[in-house]
Structures are given as C-alpha cells and as structure tokens.
Computed example of a mutant assay.
Amino acid sequence: MKDNQDKAAGKTGADVKDSRRDRLKLALRENLKRRKSQARGRSDVGASSESADASLDDASGEKSGQ
C-alpha cells in the first residue's frame, strides 16, 4: 500500500513539472512574440519619421545635393 502511494506521488510530481514546463514554454513564446511585435513597431516608427523629415525638407523648396 505504501509503495502505491509513493508511485502516485511521484507521477503527480512529474505531472506538476510537466505542467510548469508547458506554462513556461507558453510564457516564453508569448514574450518572444510581444518583443518581436515591439521591435517591428519601433522600426516602423523610425521609417515613418524619416519619411516625414524628408517630406518637410521637400516642402522647404531646397534641392537636396546642392
């Protein structure tokens, strides 16, 4: 009887570790997605601000390169 309880407790511990591992894996995946999205957002903002600066220069009537 005692051995059966020990085996059941061992499986429960393994299940807890597996569920924890799955939760961590999911959290890491979501974190990576969020970081990639933020990085894309930053690069988009940088590109749009550069084009905005270029349009302001164009509006001034100055020719670039001269």
Rank of each mutant, 00 (worst) to 15 (best):
G46Y: 05
L26C: 04
D18Y: 04
L56T: 09
K7A: 03
D58R: 13
D22I: 11
K7D: 01
G10V: 07
S37V: 05
A52L: 12
L26E: 15
S49Q: 14
K2D: 06
S48N: 07
G61H: 04
S49L: 15
Q38E: 15
K25F: 05
A14Y: 11
D53C: 05
A9F: 06
K17F: 04
D57T: 09
L24E: 13
S43I: 02
G10Q: 14
R34G: 02
A52W: 03
N4A: 10
D22T: 14
E30K: 14
D22Q: 15
L28N: 14
R40C: 05
K36M: 10
R40P: 00
S48E: 08
D58A: 15
N31C: 08
R34I: 07
R29H: 12
S60G: 03
K25T: 14
A9E: 10
G61I: 03
A9Y: 04
S60H: 01
R35S: 11
L32N: 11
R34Y: 09
R34Q: 12
L32D: 09
R23Y: 12
Q38C: 09
Q66T: 06
Q38W: 03
N31P: 00
R42P: 00
Q38I: 15
M1Q: 06
L32K: 13
K7G: 00
G61P: 00
D18P: 00
L56P: 00
S19P: 00
R20G: 02
S64H: 09
L24W: 12
D44G: 02
Q66R: 13
A59C: 01
A39T: 15
S55H: 06
S48C: 04
K63E: 10
G61R: 07
G13Q: 08
G61Y: 07
V45S: 08
D6T: 07
K33S: 07
S51L: 12
D57M: 11
G46N: 13
A27H: 06
D44Y: 08
S43L: 13
D57C: 03
K2I: 06
S37W: 05
A14I: 11
R21H: 01
A39N: 08
A39F: 04
S51K: 07
K7V: 01
A54K: 07
A39L: 10
K33P: 00
S48K: 13
R40V: 09
N31G: 03
S60T: 10
S49P: 00
K17W: 02
N31T: 11
